[in-house]
Nucleic acid binder design. Structure first.
Length: 456
RNA sequence: GUGAUUGUAGCUCAGUUGGUUAGAGCGCCAGAUUGUGGCUCUGGAGGUCGCGGGUUCGAGUCCCGUCUCUCACCCCA
């Protein structure tokens, strides 16, 4: 017999893990709802035509594909089969794939249901996504994303709201030391213009995105290998090295990017977002304009965000941005702009675990265990159990006749707070022994009093 | 996709230059205590040493292959 195992990069979540995960999920869900987002769920699988081409070539390779049902090789061109080229055969044998993120399925949903959606449409979605990546720290092949997106408005107040939501989620989770990095694709384009690197934007952005990870020298090295000349690099790092308050950075960039329409427009939008923050009464604490933030997903066109929990060696726990043309990819005639944020709760979990931020009592368990001695007291226990549950007290009865020792041990291990012991005497008198399994104290009380005390 | 790394009891790990019947701690089960868990004591169960092949009189230990874990790169939550 083969030992059972899990596929690479996937995990089981036992009860104690789930208690903590639920806490994070509930927190995020509550914040999304408080900000006026409505729930949406989409299928785990999508047509591959929906998914491919939205995440760049690299992303396409990370899609999990689902083999067609039935005798799927029958219809395939024999010459193609003979070629043994997986890439060319794939479209013939796999029409579906597992979703790679929640934004693209959302865009698909919007296009398909355009007639019954009132714009601007705000939705949130909390579901697992799958990537055929090689797992490593903070990286799984199945993980949850918690997305909130608004489509159908260009208003920059949406960007500001994203920042408010991030702040509220972090503060409710008890995360104190974190940074919301913000940048704008147009500013990045402006920088590319300023150093005359048009047409080589992607190489440029990918390299500077690594700045805080590998340092200035290594980025310079990578860029010169990619064909950037020293004077370009000088100008680039002159711009990137701007330090100080967000407002100082904006001011200084206004000068260095003054020749670029795109750059100026991006800066103006960022400025607006900061203005909205102020107007709302929120400071720009934790928010940092970071010119080195680029983000890989190719569909972003406006503001981009990333949240990093400091002092934890885990990638970003949240990311998002504005995209202009996502619905166009599905043939929508009208231009629908959208902006969204995605929280990665698996990484948030890992980070909180590392920082010891979970409160210890977060275990989901019954409050009362009913202990008994024989068939008679067991049956009486069932009545007691019913009364407890009617009063909304989470409770359970030890399901078989066993030694008291064993029953109490069970309750203690499951961290059930109280044990009610029902013997002959208790059954007759209606006064039950209730034992606190945490501190060991024990008293005798009538059922009504017990229920009253436990209901609080 | 590239590179490195790990694998011995349910868990965390020892195991010497290859040498008898592979160990410890924790956990688990039972008893001491037939109506009282956590502490203590006593006893017990549990391993094809990841899998397959090779070298050897002899392999947990050496060699090859394979799978797996973890980490880094690429990319990303």
């Amino acid at each position: 017999m083969e030992k059972p195992s899990l596929p690479k990069g996937t995990r089981d979540f036992g009860p104690s893990t789930m208690a903590k995960r639920q806490f994070i999920l509930d927190t995020i869900r509550q914040v999304f709802q408080k900000f006026g987002f409505l729930p949406l769920e989409t299928p785990a699988m999508e047509n591959l035509s929906t998914l491919t081409g939205k995440y760049g070539e690299e992303g396409d390779q990370l899609l999990f594909k689902i083999l067609n049902s039935g005798d799927f090789l029958k219809e395939v061109d024999p010459a193609k089969l003979e070629s043994r080229n997986s890439k060319s055969i794939t479209p013939d044998i796999a029409e579906k794939g597992l979703r790679y993120d929640l934004t693209v399925p959302f865009a698909r949903f919007v296009v398909m249901n355009r007639h019954e959606i009132t714009l601007p449409f705000k939705r949130f979605q909390i579901q697992p996504v799958w990537r055929a990546d090689r797992p490593q720290k903070g990286r799984y092949r199945e993980f949850f994303q918690c997305d909130a997106d608004v489509v159908g408005t260009d208003s920059l107040v949406c960007e500001a709201e994203i920042i408010f939501m991030i702040k509220e989620v972090m503060s409710r989770l008890g995360v104190i030391d974190y940074t919301i990095k913000i940048n704008h694709r147009r500013i990045l384009n402006g920088i590319a213009e300023a150093i005359q690197a048009m047409g080589k934007e992607s190489e440029l952005f990918v390299a500077i995105d690594k700045l805080d990870k590998i340092g200035v020298e290594n980025v310079k090295k990578e860029l010169s290998e990619k064909g950037f000349n020293p004077s370009q690099l000088d100008t680039l790092f002159q711009v990137l090295s701007i330090q100080g308050l967000n407002s100082d950075k904006i001011e200084s960039l206004n000068n260095s990017l003054s020749a670029s329409n795109s750059g100026i427009k991006g800066l103006r939008e960022i400025q607006h977002v900061f203005d909205f923050l102020k107007q709302y009464g929120e400071s720009d604490e934790h928010v940092e304009l970071d010119l080195a933030l680029a983000r890989g997903l190719s569909y972003y066109t406006g503001c981009i965000f990333e949240v990093k929990i400091n002092s934890v060696s885990i990638g970003s726990v949240s990311g998002g941005g504005r995209y202009d043309n996502l619905t166009q990819a599905f043939g929508a005639k009208e231009r629908l702009s959208g902006v969204g944020i995605s929280f990665g709760i698996d990484r948030i979990y890992d980070a909180m675990e590392e920082l010891n931020l979970f409160s210890p009592q977060a275990l989901l368990s019954s409050k009362v265990l009913i202990c008994h001695f024989d068939e008679g007291t067991f049956n009486h226990g069932l009545h007691v159990l019913a009364s407890l549950r009617k009063s909304g007290i989470a409770s359970e009865i030890y399901p078989e006749v066993a030694k008291l020792k064993k029953q109490l041990e069970y309750g203690s291990k499951k961290r059930i707070e109280h044990a009610i012991v029902i013997g002959e005497e208790e059954m007759k008198s209606g006064i039950f022994t209730i034992k606190n399994l945490i501190n060991g104290e024990q008293t005798r009380l009538p059922l009504e009093t017990i229920i009253q005390q436990l209901s609080n």
